[in-house]
Design a protein around this nucleic acid. Structure first.
Length: 800
RNA sequence: GCCGGUGUGUCGGAAUGGCAGACGAGGUGGACUCAAAAUCCUCUGAUGGCAACAUCGUGUGGGUUCAAGUCCCACCACCGGCACCA
């Protein structure tokens, strides 16, 4: 049967839409299934084949679930605040609102053309007032609970985009948006205290089913380390110098201390430091370096000794020198370390360069040649001497520190608090008022949303202030608390704010009185399966888990974790095997593929091109192969006859239903499609298929090529939509062949093949094997040592 | 440096310890055609052989096993994450 591909595709898209086939029903008694894909940023460039791949995985699973009788929520929306739209506005003068609306319209029509089974009644747009009202609401809750605060600190700043960036947004020392080098700048900024949730985010990972590398990346990013805080004193003063260490058992090997160039001790003790000029010069030198440079210059250690200051080692009372050096960071631990050159590479290199003593406290290495970081017997360590196990010696030292009141166990995280404001226009206004009398005052809840005012100038100010700062009517306001004159916060939230809770809004997108109805949240949460890109694992995924844990703690949501399961798709590379980019000219436009081949072919190819989780290059010929497959599949309709099929083909059909059903669950779409292709070859070889069997196959292929399957379903007289027809069931008994072919190995090499009944007795099989001509020749005149029969697999004979 | 992953034809890629290379692409030869495209059929890991067949073959070197792409040990290469993190 021949079909005009594009004709049937728009026809079925309209019918699905009209009938509301993909609308989720709140509170339905059927089992629920919430499938979530990362909603797109509606860029001007339009859809990318990567979007199609990202959505196709759960698209297939969602369609399968509907056929299995689930009440499926598979929503889509737009994460529309962000810099690209704003930069476009600065360049063209067109308002971001207009640009956003246009892009959303474009994306929507492109997504519909692919036939995704999204519930279009629940579309959200993070830039709409009725959405960002609740983003602001959550911010106020965070503020109320002390998790949103302002602080002056060194921040990552992108001089090109003129914005402060979070740690997550400046990975590798590069701005996430424009890729220029990020510099460190002291600025008064908003933070969200995500570090408060570090442990919950870590522990929560044990309760969810994430891809192992997703979990691993989050664990790395959170970077928990367990150690001890130890208080050293500055000789001749009451001043303590607190350090963090993971090896407090090496305290007797401490021969000097190092503090970060920014450490406050320097200013506190300025009058005691004799070489303050050199110290300040060094500090200025360090300030010039970007954090990236500072963390890259690993080889050569630099630093300055604080002349006039000495520290006292609390375990042995020895006086030791204090240095400042940029290999110690103010942002980790306490900004100060105890240096154990014998057992730490960096300390060793520093000690060698500055001629400081090296004292061995763990036997096993040669401390003249390098630091020894391995295990060994403790020496020169008073009460720790003789310990050989790191765990025991640390435990003993912790006990001692506690007893003497000079230190205690402590935990550190690499993750830092989330720098949460942007000096930009196109974002959610931060609902805070600065009152000269009352300080920072939250905008009352009933005044939300705090609307983003209309402006005509989108560029940030030269001083790095938001364009909102120029809007007098916006800035000048009354203090909600005292009624006096006050000024509004003019910074906006970062692009990650709206996406940190969007999956909650899908559940109840039009609710005007709360984030979402608690009953509905209870019904739909958690998200059963979330698929997205690996690039979001240490940003969006961490942020949204943090918000969700917080919302759980204040009773707004019924689960601690938002996502029960997380998978990730691999990239689609250009035909040249390189990452797609405009500059390389290797970008494939999904619209053109739909124009030429149709949506079903595009979907099938994207799922067939390789392992779903791995990167794979685009191949136009591969697309054609999938086109052939779908055409041949449709043509096979003409092979339907009243004649029964061979037992072999019938068995192959049941095996395929089984394999496809299983493979789809594991996102092994490529092998599922391959199995159907193989079966189709078998059907053509036989030249015959029954109507019932073909009907089963139409349903089996439906999640992948839904338009074609609806058309075939209709042609066959199927009731309703194929998309809601029952998922095909296989008969386990029919997946078992009556006769099987077994290879016979002699000393590990295949020498013959025999065909036996599947239920044949062991003796009969072995007899048949030995009777095989090839086998008989190979064992002629030799002694049989061993016979192995692996049922259903092979026969292995060992001869001498 | 630490942690994780991967390594298989010409290419994308398949293989609960059990016939390596499923499926697709590409190539080969043929059919149809004036011709091309499309479609259909044949062959397609390497080497030797007219052939049946034999030998070799999953990054390298060892090992376990009747049997190893798969398990173990050592190494090499590439990819990803973290990183002067104390």
């Amino acid at each position: 049967m021949k079909y005009n591909v594009s004709e049937i595709e728009s026809k079925w898209q309209k019918k699905w839409d009209d009938a509301g086939v993909f609308c989720a029903k709140d509170g339905d008694p059927r089992k629920k299934f919430y499938a979530l894909v990362e909603f797109p940023y509606p860029s001007g460039a339009g859809m990318h084949v990567g979007h199609i791949k990202a959505y196709s995985g759960l698209e297939v699973i969602s369609r399968k679930r509907r056929m299995q009788g689930y009440n499926v929520l598979f929503p889509i929306g737009f994460d529309a605040y962000g810099l690209p739209t704003e930069n476009y506005a600065i360049k063209t003068g067109i308002h971001p609102r207009q640009v956003t609306d246009k892009n959303i319209e474009k994306f929507s029509s492109q997504l519909r053309r692919v036939g995704f089974s999204f519930d279009w009644n629940r579309v959200i747009d993070t830039t709409q007032e009725d959405y960002y009202k609740w983003t602001q609401y959550i911010f106020l809750k965070l503020f109320e609970n002390g998790l949103a605060f302002r602080d002056t600190a060194l921040v990552n700043y992108c001089p090109t985009c003129k914005v402060v960036l979070s740690n997550e947004d400046s990975q590798g020392g590069k701005c996430d948006i424009c890729h220029s080098d990020v510099i460190q700048k002291s600025k008064d900024v908003w933070y969200l205290r995500i570090t408060e949730y570090a442990d919950k985010l870590l522990q929560g990972l044990d309760t969810v089913d994430y891809l192992p590398n997703v979990t691993q990346q989050q664990v790395n990013w959170i970077g928990k380390s367990t150690g001890a805080f130890v208080n050293f004193t500055v000789a001749g003063t009451e001043e303590t110098l607190r350090i963090y260490t993971t090896r407090c058992d090496t305290l007797f090997g401490v021969t000097f201390m190092v503090i970060a160039p920014e450490h406050p001790l320097i200013d506190q003790m300025a009058d005691r430091i004799n070489n303050m000029d050199a110290v300040l010069a060094y500090r200025a030198e360090c300030a010039k370096k970007t954090e990236f440079e500072r963390t890259q210059l690993v080889k050569d250690k630099t630093g300055v000794c604080l002349d006039g200051l000495r520290a006292v080692n609390p375990v042995n009372g020895k006086e030791i020198p204090i240095f400042i050096a940029d290999y110690v960071m103010m942002g980790y631990g306490t900004g100060a370390i105890m240096a154990v050159p014998a057992h730490d590479e960096r300390d060793w290199a520093f000690a060698k360069k500055f001629g400081v003593d090296i004292v061995e406290v763990i036997k096993g290495g040669n401390i003249e040649e390098g630091a020894y970081a391995g295990d060994g017997e403790m020496v020169n360590s008073d009460f720790l001497n003789g310990y050989t196990n790191k765990k025991d010696s640390i435990a003993r030292m912790l006990e001692y520190l506690k007893e003497k009141g000079i230190g205690e166990m402590g935990v550190q995280y690499k993750m830092k608090d989330w720098a949460f404001n942007r000096q930009r226009y196109w974002g959610e206004p931060i609902p805070i008022v600065h009152c000269p009398k009352c300080g920072m005052v939250p905008v009352p809840y009933e005044q939300l949303p705090l609307r983003l005012p209309n402006v005509t100038e989108f560029a940030p100010g030269e001083g790095g202030e938001s364009p909102l700062a120029k809007i007098e009517e916006f800035v000048n306001c009354e203090c909600p608390k005292c009624g006096g004159k006050a000024r509004r916060e003019t910074d906006t939230m970062p692009q990650w704010a709206g996406s940190s809770w969007y999956f909650l809004r899908y559940i109840d997108p039009n609710n005007d009185s709360c984030i979402a109805d608690p009953e509905k949240l209870k019904y739909w949460l958690p998200v059963d399966w979330y698929n997205g890109g690996m690039e979001h694992v240490t940003r969006h995924m961490i942020y949204s888990r943090f918000w969700h844990h917080f919302l759980y703690d204040i009773g707004e949501v019924p689960t601690a974790e938002p996502y029960a399961k997380r998978t990730a798709q691999g990239l689609i590379l250009g035909p040249d095997g390189e990452k797609m980019s405009k500059s390389k000219g290797n970008v494939v436009d999904p619209n053109e593929v739909v124009d030429v081949y149709g949506a079903d072919v595009l979907r099938t190819y994207i799922l067939f091109m390789g392992d779903y989780g791995s990167a794979a290059p685009w191949s136009e010929n591969g697309v054609k192969g999938c086109k052939r497959f779908l055409e041949r599949f449709a043509d096979a309709y003409d092979l339907i006859s009243g004649k029964p099929m061979s037992a072999k083909l019938e068995s192959a059909i049941h095996k395929t239903v089984k394999k496809v059903s299983e493979d789809l669950e594991e996102m092994k779409f490529n092998t599922a499609i391959a199995a159907m292709m193989g079966l189709l070859n078998d059907i053509y070889a036989e030249g015959n298929i029954t109507k019932d069997a073909y009907n089963m196959l139409v349903r089996l292929l439906c999640p992948i090529a839904p338009h074609l399957c609806e058309e075939l379903w209709e042609t066959m007289g199927g009731k309703g939509f194929c998309a809601l027809a029952p998922w095909p069931e296989y008969d386990e008994a029919k997946t078992i062949d009556a006769e099987i072919e077994l290879p016979v190995q002699i000393n590990g090499k295949v020498r013959g093949k025999i065909t036996v009944a599947a239920d044949a007795a062991k003796e009969d099989i072995l007899a048949a094997a030995k009777a095989n001509a090839g086998v008989a020749a190979a064992i002629e005149g030799k002694t049989l040592i061993k016979e192995i029969l692996v049922p259903g697999k092979l026969i292995s004979l060992v001869v001498k």
